[in-house]
């Protein structure tokens, strides 16, 4: 019986089906393709997670990770009692919090203004200009800014000749440093931040504007009653997810702008971890501070995600 059924089938179809089945069963090429990524992630993504145990040990390089003695939560206790680290946590939350606020508000307003531009050549030119700083490393921006903001730099000499202002130590005095750091961060990021709002604006249903127009609404009223309400969900999503960054004040920027004069008000967790943890060799303490930062960030991300889900029905997966 078997042979007759086989013979009845057209040979082309049979081999095609068989090949399809063989293809589906033969998954080793797919596993092989995933292999390089898996190996790299196992080594550089997962192995360091094991290294986190040194936060609970007194890690000495010559004893190795396993040979070092356990100390429990000693490093965490020290972190909360040591005045320097408390100050660093306050600095970080303050600088990061200001950055988060302005990096939501400024791009939001800028996107609204950009949305009113009807001439596409102007719109594209402005977009090209404002996105650029985002792609330049803080090493180079830091080099430029320290030069421009020096006491005899171009900014101070212009302020002096235009308004008669005495030279300001933008990067040498604590409060001015915080101001400069937040302002220059907004300067670097605001253009890029408009993208998400512009995308949301492109999705607003035009018939809403038409209806408002028929009702005699001015453009200002349309903005208040149509444009802004349709952007609220995305603002909520961006804002709540940004909460996870409250202890993330941007290492690259601070490290390339700060100096010992402003450590008191400008030192943040990441720069503190680098200096104490790596330069001074206090690996365990540095790791403990790093873990504290990640845990706070993660908890806030989860809370933010739940709020975003409740308020704006946002799902990542």
């Amino acid at each position: 019986m078997q042979t007759t059924t086989k013979a009845l089938r057209a040979p082309g179809i049979q081999s095609g089906q068989a090949r399809m089945k063989g293809f589906l069963r033969r998954t080793w090429p797919l596993h092989l393709m995933l292999l390089p990524a898996v190996i790299l992630q196992l080594i550089f993504g997962y192995l360091p997670l094991g290294g986190l145990v040194i936060a609970f040990k007194d890690f000495k390089p010559y004893d190795g990770i396993w040979g070092s003695a356990w100390v429990g939560l000693e490093h965490f206790r020290f972190m909360f009692e040591y005045p320097d680290s408390k100050q660093v946590i306050i600095n970080t939350a303050l600088i990061a919090g200001l950055k988060i606020m302005f990096n939501i508000a400024v791009p939001f307003i800028f996107a609204l203004l950009l949305n009113e531009v009807r001439r596409s050549s102007v719109k594209r030119t402005v977009q090209t200009l404002v996105y650029l700083p985002y792609f330049i490393s803080w090493v180079f921006l830091g080099g430029i800014l320290t030069d421009m903001l020096a006491s005899d730099g171009i900014v101070n000499s212009l302020l002096n000749s235009w308004f008669g202002i005495e030279p300001i130590l933008f990067l040498g005095e604590g409060n001015w440093f915080r101001f400069t750091v937040v302002l220059s961060d907004v300067w670097q990021q605001f253009g890029f931040g408009t993208i998400v709002y512009l995308a949301a604006l492109a999705g607003v249903n035009p018939s809403l504007y038409e209806a408002a127009e028929v009702d005699g609404a001015t453009r200002w009223q349309q903005t208040i009653h149509v444009t802004i309400p349709s952007l609220i969900p995305i603002v909520i999503v961006v804002g709540t997810l940004a909460m996870g960054n409250i202890l993330n004040a941007d290492f690259d920027q601070i490290f390339n702008l700060y100096n010992p004069l402003v450590y008191e008000k400008g030192d943040i967790i990441d720069t503190f971890v680098y200096r104490t943890g790596i330069l001074n060799g206090q690996y365990s303490f540095g790791t403990a501070v790093g873990i504290f930062k990640s845990v706070v960030g993660f908890v806030l991300i989860v809370i933010g995600y739940r709020i975003a889900y409740k308020l704006a029905d946002y799902k990542i997966f």
Partner: peptide
Amino acid sequence: WFFVFTMLFNGGVIPTYIL
């Protein structure tokens, strides 16, 4: 999930440096 996990959690600067 193996890959997404590494997006969410990582060892940070010092454990990577020791590695």
